[in-house]
């Protein structure tokens, strides 16, 4: 999020909407193409890979296992540990620093909180579940794509959950609400609102917002997200079913 006013001063804001279409030709409520593959990493308890537009993200799950160091244990339920990180070669710009920065630490935290809601943690007191999200290539919306991927990775691990969350963001440029911002849109839009939803009850599990939106826009944004969520949920389910169905098809 750049903040439009600030950019005005430089006189350098690119026009994000041309002839009623976005720069990459999408309609306002259109997501980028999404491809999800469940599994793939042998050592992890669960894993998944996503290509969401130009984002390429791996997620893996380890555990549940004994929480260490011991003082991190909760005698009532499993603790979730989450690390979101971006590869130093992930952006089109310069080489990044390795190791999590303040942004990555915050994203790790809000991602963890999404899954604290849905994982049935009471089944595994004293244990920990580790969720790793590695952004190999980034083009805006990596936290949402990371959460969507981690949900699939968790499902492949057999860790019980009450829901299969997805996430996507909605933003605003000029008077238009736009779904699923890419990097360029994210940099120059007037608002950005990433949201994670538990589709079973449409419960809001992650909500962040930055910029300027009216109440009406927030609510309209939420319905755009839920509509997109039907597609994302469908892709998550297909990805989870695919490895099993391909083996079943072999013996039809």
């Amino acid at each position: 999020m750049g903040g439009a006013g600030e950019m005005n001063a430089t006189g350098n804001i690119p026009e994000l909407i041309v002839n009623g279409k976005r720069l990459d030709g999408r309609a306002f409520d259109e997501m980028r193409p999404i491809k999800i593959v469940a599994g793939g990493l042998k050592n992890a308890a669960g894993s998944a890979y996503i290509e969401w537009g130009n984002n390429k993200i791996l997620a893996a799950v380890y555990g549940p296992k004994e929480a260490l160091p011991k003082h991190t244990q909760d005698p009532e339920k499993a603790v979730i540990k989450c690390r979101y990180s971006m590869a130093p070669f992930s952006s089109l710009e310069e080489h990044g620093r390795s190791g999590p920065n303040r942004r990555a630490i915050e994203i790790s935290k809000v991602t963890r909180e999404v899954f604290e809601n849905v994982i049935i943690r009471e089944d595994f007191p004293g244990s920990e579940i580790d969720i790793y999200v590695e952004v190999l290539q980034s083009d805006g919306g990596t936290r949402a794509a990371g959460i969507t991927t981690a949900a699939v990775a968790l499902a492949t691990s057999g860790i019980p959950m009450t829901d299969l969350p997805y996430a996507v963001s909605v933003g605003k440029t000029g008077e238009h609400l736009i779904l699923d911002l890419n990097k360029a849109e994210d940099n120059y839009s007037d608002a950005d609102m990433p949201v994670a939803i538990g589709p079973r009850n449409d419960s809001i599990l992650l909500l962040q917002m930055d910029g300027t939106l009216t109440k009406e826009e927030v609510m309209r944004g939420m319905s755009m997200i839920k509509k997109a969520g039907q597609t994302i949920t469908k892709l998550q389910k297909e990805a989870l079913r695919a490895p099993y169905e391909s083996i079943m098809d072999r013996y039809k």
Binding site: A155, L164, R200, K237
Partner: peptide, 9 residues
């Protein structure tokens, strides 16, 4: 049918 976490049975 194949079902996922949170799916209505």
């Amino acid at each position: 049918r194949i079902v996922v976490p949170g799916e209505l049975l």
